[in-house]
Amino acid sequence: MSEIDMAVIKPEMMKPYIWLETSDGSIQQVEQEIAMYCPLICQEIIQKGMGSSKSCAICLPQRVSPVTLSLILDYCRFHQVPGRSNKERKSYDEKFIRMDTKRLCELTSAADSLQLKPLVDLTSRALARIIEGKSPEEIREIFHLPDDLTEEEKLEPLKNTTDDPRIRLLNRLYAKKRKELRERERLKNVEVEEEHVDERSVDDLLSFINGNDGDPKEVKTSKNKKKNRRKKEQQQKNSSLKEASEVNKVEVNGQSIRHQSAEADRIAETSNSHTEDVFAHREFDDGDIDDGIDPALKEKIDREVEDFARRLNSDWPERMQELLSSGQERKMMLFTPNGNSFLRRNA
C-alpha cells in the first residue's frame, strides 16, 4: 500500500502537465494545477488516473470547444493563484465576461459541463444582466430566438398603477382584442371544448333547447351549479313551440350574452369593489332573458358608470363620444409605433 502510494505520487511530481482532448479530437497539454481547478477534470485525474499521457487523455464533454477551453483555462489560471485579493478577482471577472453574447452562452454551457460553479455563476449573472431592461423584441434579437408566440399570449394587460386613463383604455382594448382572437380560434377549432363560463352556458342552452340529455354526470353537475338557470330554461321551453323561434332566440341570447360580457368588462374597469363578482354572477344567471337587460341590473350598471365617470373627473357622455369618434384612429395607432412605445415602456 505504501509502495503503491509512492508510485502514484512520483509520476505526478515528475509530470506537472496533463493531456486534454476536446470534442473535435484535438489534444493539448495543460498545467496540471490549473486543470485541477475544474472539478470534473480533477475527478478524472484522481479517481480514474486519466490524463497522464497523450494516449489516455481526458475526453472533455461535447460542449467544450478548443476556443472555449482556452477561455476557461485563462480563468482558472488566474483564480487558482493564492493570495489574490477579492478586488483583483472581481476586476478580472468583469473584464473576462466582456464578450459577444454567443460566446458567453457557449462559455456558460461549457463551464456547467465542467462543473466549474464560480464561472457558471459569473456567466449566468452576466446573461441575466443582458436581459434586464430589455423588451421581448430586443431579447429575441440578441439571442436569435424564434418569434413563435401567438398574438393572444403577447397581449397581456399593462400595469396600471398610475391610474392613467389611457392605460386603462389600452387594457380594455387589449381585452377586446383577446376576445376577438379567442372567438377566431373557437371558429377554427369547433370540436375543441374550452372550459369557459360563456362556452358552457351556450352549450347548456343548446343542449336544453335541442332536448338532448347529456350523460347523467354532466346533467347532475349542471343541476348542482345552476339552479336558477334551470328554472329560467324551463320557463323558456314552456313559452316556445316552434323550432325556428327557438333558433332565433338562441341567436338573441347569444348576442345578449356577448352584450352582457361587454357590460361586465366595463364594470370590471370601474372598480375592484366587492360588487364586481356579484354583478358577474347575476349576469350569467340572467343571461337567457330574451327581452334585454334586467331593469334592476341596468340601474346598478348605470350607477357604476356614473361612479366611473366621476373618478375619471370628466363627463361620461363626452368621454364616450370622444372614444367613438376617435376609436378608429386610436385603434390604428395602437398597433403601430405608439403601441410599441407602450409595450417598451411597460418592459
Binding site: 454551457s109 431592461g133 423584441e137 431579447i139 439571442f143
Partner: peptide
Amino acid sequence: LLYTILDHLNDDPFARKSLSQSC
C-alpha cells in the same frame, strides 16, 4: 442553467416578463 438565469432575474419582474414573452 436557464432556471439559474431566471433566478438571477428575480429582482426585476419586468425582465422575467419580457423573457417569457420573447418566444
